[in-house]
Computed example of a mutant assay.
Amino acid sequence: MKTGTREAMVLSEVLRSNACMIDHYNLYMTGCQDQQLRTILDRQQRHTLDSFQRLIQMMQSHGLDTSNIPLPTTMSVTAGGAQTTTGAAQYGTQWTGRQYGQQTGTTSYSAQYTAGSPAVGTQMTAGQPGTQAPTFNDRTISEGALLFHKSGAEINTRAALESSEPHIRNALTNMARNCIEMSYELYNYMSQRGWYQLPTTPQNFVTHSPTQQQYPPQ
């Protein structure tokens, strides 16, 4: 497959998944009850939207068609006191997006966690046509957001492996790393509330350390 065609295919998949996540976050924040979770979701959505816009502009700077890429319903975001829109200045071929976890302007990408049991939203119930859309509780919202980032890390990594253009490959690698950071942020939030407990080690589980490894006689 020729260079350019491959990049267009993998970038289209990445952007579609990002647009879907951004729009789902709108739904999540509508039903979110815990202010701390809402802050995390808002921060992550802003970061993902910024990455989406930069990747669109990178495609355009490489001459790739973006007319069929589905856009999120919200294509502007205020971050660090500045307004970012689809029509912002061109970024060229060099990826200049922020690493998730860095501080830029007045926006801090590092969450602070506090102990306690937050209030949760109403339980999701099966709806009938014409009825009000169901809401999710905070545990379901955080679980869904976590799965989005786990999937995003896989999609971006696979896309980076399939891309031969250095700047695009670097951008996708950074996006995969950011998905990992955002998923870890949600994991910490869920773990502190007892929503993500690791399974206990079975009593009959056998582990072999390097010092215990047995080698066949020489």
Rank of each mutant, 00 (worst) to 15 (best):
G194C: 12
Q33W: 05
M21Y: 05
I22G: 00
F136R: 01
R38I: 05
G127W: 09
P118Q: 10
P217S: 15
G31F: 09
S209H: 10
S163Y: 01
Q90V: 07
C32R: 01
Q123G: 06
S110Q: 15
N18D: 15
T66A: 07
Y187K: 03
L161R: 08
G127H: 11
G63R: 02
Q214P: 02
P134I: 11
T107H: 04
M1G: 14
A89V: 10
P70R: 06
N68V: 08
T201G: 02
K2T: 10
S209C: 05
P129W: 09
I168G: 00
N204R: 07
Q35R: 13
S117H: 11
Q102A: 15
E154T: 12
Y215K: 11
T48V: 12
I69A: 06
A176P: 01
Y184T: 08
Q197H: 05
A126C: 09
T131E: 13
T78H: 07
E165M: 07
Y28S: 03
I155D: 00
G4D: 14
G116H: 04
W95A: 02
F205R: 13
E162L: 12
W195Y: 10
N178K: 02
Y91G: 08
G31V: 06
T86N: 09
Q102M: 13
Q44D: 06
W95P: 00
M21N: 02
T207V: 12
N178H: 03
V206L: 14
L27Q: 07
L198H: 10
P166M: 10
M190A: 13
I168A: 01
T96L: 10
Y196F: 15
L147T: 08
A145Q: 03
L186W: 04
G152F: 00
S163V: 05
Y196T: 02
I141K: 01
M175R: 01
N188T: 10
S110C: 09
Q35H: 10
E181M: 07
E165L: 11
